[in-house]
Amino acid sequence: MTLKEINVKERVIVKKLNGQGAVKRRIMDMGITRGVEIYVRKLAPLGDPIEVTVRGYELSIRKEEATMIEVEKVA
């Protein structure tokens, strides 16, 4: 499943990043790499983008980019 499908207040682990080029590199530069834990903090009032906590800081990304991030829920 991808990060887009994760509900607010859930915790996940990144399995894999799809896509390529600039967008993927940017997402990885910001700390979303394989094995990292992501906490979905909130959804913007209009339903997009989302805000997540990753590596101890808050990052906002659009749902479209979130579909590139394959994740697994933390038990």
């Binding site: 967008v23 940017r26 910001m30 800081y57 808050e58 990052l59 906002s60 990304i61 980019e65």
Partner: peptide, 11 residues
């Protein structure tokens, strides 16, 4: 296509 939006939210 719209470009991605990846932005840090400062405290």
């Amino acid at each position: 296509n719209p470009a991605p939006f990846v932005m840090e939210m400062p405290a």
